[in-house]
Design a protein around this nucleic acid. Structure first.
Lengths: 148, 148
DNA sequence: ATAATTGCAAACTGTTTGCAGCACG
DNA sequence: CGTGCTGCAAACAGTTTGCAATTAT
């Protein structure tokens, strides 16, 4: 499933009305999906209002929330506690590697082995239904920069 | 190293002056360390001002920040994006399991195998210097509650 | 004395909400 | 023409900051 159909199907599941705002947001997300660029909600809003001055902040927040639930968007946490959103090209469950200097994000297909999770589950008597994992470090470019 | 000496040594590293506020915060942290209770910064402040009305919010935030750097406190992230602090009894690096219903926190000694991290490092050409991992689920008690 | 530390209040960031009105179907 | 969706502005939560006053050493 490519990025375009991922977003398209999320919008289809979304709700009843095909409003102009949704079309605008859709277009922008397709664009961001292709470049792989990450964005904050505020950030995304600022970007959109350049061309569409009357679009409301709340509309963006409300839609981002829904798209996150539908897993069309992923929330990515940085080491400093801040976060941003991103449309990932990886299908299914995965994790990220983030650069603490330039905030570059890399998708990883690594995940914790299923048997480890069930061992933890059994040991703690929990019913585990998710986890969040992010690696922090310095990317290739930032390492080079620092050596100079 | 027990909780008491963990906090004591963090305070020793802290700075020059042994102020009354630090003593008050120290006492409260010892208490929270023993019960294992988690707290937000705001929360912690509200609790302290009951007995010490003139303690400032900023003092708490400033000190919590430093204690986190000194690894006397740990920041724990929940599934909904909120977070709290906690004094953990585990020594060294570890992770947590949090209940999405009652917010109970369990310390886990599981961690991602070193060789996996270096494989990721090599593959992505990153210099990994940390990671965050939290498992989400429902604790024993909340599972029971729901079955009733 | 003097510099670290604090309290206060105001500012700030990121997000949510209530509600009246718009516009999609 | 009904109601889902939106814009607005205000409220909110959590945190940070500037600065003058306080206080440990």
């Amino acid at each position: 499933m490519d990025i375009e159909s991922k977003i398209t199907s999320a919008f289809a599941k979304l709700g009843q009305r095909n409003t102009e705002q949704r079309r605008i947001i859709f277009e922008k997300l397709i664009e961001l999906g292709h470049t792989g660029e990450a964005f904050s909600a505020e950030n995304f809003w600022q970007e959109l209002r350049k061309t569409n001055p009357r679009i409301g902040r709340a509309t963006i927040f409300r839609l981002i929330e829904k798209l996150e639930e539908l897993k069309a968007l992923e929330r990515i946490n940085f080491a400093d506690g801040s976060h941003c959103f991103r449309i990932c090209s990886c299908e299914g469950h995965h994790h990220h590697l983030t650069c603490t200097e330039c905030r570059r994000i890399i998708e990883l297909d690594y995940c914790i082995p299923e048997e480890q999770i069930s061992a933890i589950q059994k040991q703690a008597n929990f019913e585990i239904d998710g986890h969040s994992l992010t690696f922090f470090g310095r990317c290739e470019d930032c390492q080079k920069k620092d050596k100079q």
